[in-house]
Write a protein that binds this DNA or RNA. Structure first.
Lengths: 143, 143
DNA sequence: TCAATTTATTTGATATATCAATGTTTGACA
DNA sequence: TGTCAAACATTGATATATCAAATAAATTGA
């Protein structure tokens, strides 16, 4: 029994890392110079244009500091622009450039295919159960 | 259906991060200045004293470069010593110090408790299914 | 035996994670 | 209205991840 408790966290770690490496490699092979994390951030802005960096962090499950630095790189890559926020000067208005929009669309296709590949042969009810169990773990860790 | 495929990877990411943050916090509160990753590496050496860094990396699912740097820190913290390997001069003999052994033992207790807390209320058969599904994902990503 | 290949580790460069500290700006409220 | 706590973002320090390149030792094969 103890064995299983040990293995499950190992497997979780391995699964997420394997998927990320696979996904990143597919992107690289398709010729895109963007990381999954960077893509997630741009996508979050497109889906909710007035989002704050804090909210972006919650959505992508990232630390504020990480979000700031990912956005630094996205600005440098000219996928994003930083502007002053209209009503709250503590905040930053994040504008997705045309180049940014283009790449998000292209990458989206690769990501959808990646997910399909990764979940091939797995029953939807099983996926649902995995989701349920993982959420229970998340809940248990919020003491 | 597409929704679920999206959510499952998000949940995996969130679950592993939440667990790691929880585990690390428990260690900190217990007064130990060591990371989970560092602990994993020392434990791997104790379980298999003649292990190579490459094998350690495979076991803890880490890149060689990461293993080298984690070991750097463990040597600096005096939990490990590097020596010349007896038969293969490319390799490094890794010696766990007494301090290293002590901390692994203490941390072990905290980790076991963490796992128990994280898996509270989850049926072993469910854990087994999650493990099975995650392994299938790992397999699918090894194209 | 010598050259070519493979193996083990290290190092450099860049990206992300985490905690703590700092700097502004807002908003609440005495 | 002036003060103070909360909110938002950045920065610094350190740890880890990833890829590529470099180094050095071992192995293979002609």
């Amino acid at each position: 029994m103890e064995k299983l408790n040990e293995i499950i966290f190992y497997t979780m770690d391995k699964a997420i890392k394997t998927y990320r490496m696979f996904a990143q490699q597919q992107l690289r092979e398709a010729g895109y110079k963007i990381t999954i994390d960077q893509w997630l951030i741009i996508k979050g802005i497109l889906e909710n244009p007035d989002i704050s960096q804090l909210e972006l962090g919650e959505k992508a499950f990232k630390d504020n500091a990480s979000v700031t630095r990912i956005i630094d790189l996205l600005v440098k890559a000219e996928y994003l622009e930083r502007q002053f926020h209209d009503t709250d000067r503590r905040r930053v208005k994040l504008i997705v450039t045309q180049t940014g929009m283009d790449i998000v669309g292209h990458v989206q296709k690769v990501v959808l295919q990646n997910r399909k590949t990764a979940l091939d042969g797995i029953d939807p009810t099983e996926i649902e159960l995995v989701n349920k169990v993982l959420n229970k773990i998340i809940q248990n860790c919020h003491i």
